[in-house]
């Protein structure tokens, strides 16, 4: 049973990666590397962890997700499609005028998007807000957020880290997509946020370090986060930018570039997935 579940999630992640590739190729612009590094975490959250109702996206008691690294929108959109929030056809309108799928998440246009993001550093504050409201209303929904490791260079992230610990937001779980790259290169070369784990510890968080591409480890960490009372949890997920496509892996150059038709075909071949666009 457990093994079946993991295989199911891994298969979903593969399909989600294929949809990320195809939607970006059809848009001919967008953020490939950081969408692929986040894919497994998003699949685990939406298909196993979060209590949501795709036919009722604004259900007040739902668990919430904030994509603080909003540029990974294609990963979120692909997951929302597979979850049934809206039809697949929308994926091929990504980033076009009038589309419900904006370049960065837009809660007013896209069913299932809980917060508009895109300006780095702000999403984690908004997630705190949702968690604080949950405490005020004595609701037991949980809030999840996903941050980039370059995003940790924003001072606001650390203001928010202080807020979450001070208000004992144990209903909040943040992931850091620790893929070691930002736009201008390695995070340690541009402006190092390391040691990330020690920083969050010092800020009063429960800190878990995992392989962000291992479904077992992701699910296990979330269970530990749920069981932790009195403080927020951060799951520092070791990831590979561009994960799953050999020629995109660990390449800063694939941050904000979409695959062309030929690169798309090669990527799909590597994934072993056929997509009908």
């Amino acid at each position: 049973m457990q093994q079946n579940k993991i295989e199911f999630l891994e298969e979903k992640a593969k399909q989600v990666r294929a949809d990320i590739i195809c939607s970006l190729a059809s848009a001919n612009s967008g953020h490939t590397g950081g969408s692929l590094s986040a894919a497994d975490i998003l699949v685990a959250l939406y298909f196993e962890v979060m209590n949501v109702r795709p036919d009722q996206p604004k259900w007040p008691d739902r668990d919430r997700f904030v994509l603080s690294k909003g540029h990974a929108a294609p990963a979120l959109y692909a997951v929302l499609v597979h979850k049934g929030y809206f039809s697949r056809d929308h994926l091929w309108t990504l980033r076009q005028a009038g589309s419900i799928l904006q370049g960065h998440p837009d809660m007013k246009r896209t069913p299932g998007v809980d917060m508009s993001t895109g300006s780095l550093g702000q999403g984690i504050s908004a997630a705190n807000g949702m968690a604080l409201a949950g405490k005020i209303d004595k609701k037991d929904y949980r809030v999840y957020a996903l941050l980039g490791d370059g995003e940790l260079e924003e001072g606001e992230v650390w203001e928010a880290a202080m807020t979450a610990a001070h208000y004992k937001l144990d209903n909040l779980t943040a992931f850091v997509d620790h893929n070691h790259l930002q736009i201008d290169g390695f995070i340690t070369d541009v402006k190092s946020p390391e040691p990330v784990d020690e920083k969050f510890k010092a800020f009063g968080w429960n800190v878990l370090c995992i392989n962000g591409h291992d479904m077992n480890e992701i699910l296990e960490a979330v269970e530990q986060a749920k069981a932790t009372k009195g403080k927020p949890t951060v799951i520092i997920a070791e990831t590979v930018k561009g994960k799953g496509i050999s020629f995109m892996e660990c390449q800063a150059g694939w941050h904000g570039v979409a695959p062309n038709a030929q690169q798309k075909e090669q990527a799909l071949k590597e994934l072993g997935v056929e997509v009908n666009v």
């Binding site: 909003g70 960065h104 837009d106 895109g118 300006s119």
Partner: peptide
Amino acid sequence: VGEDGGSH
């Protein structure tokens, strides 16, 4: 700016 959208 184009495709990045309103946030940018």
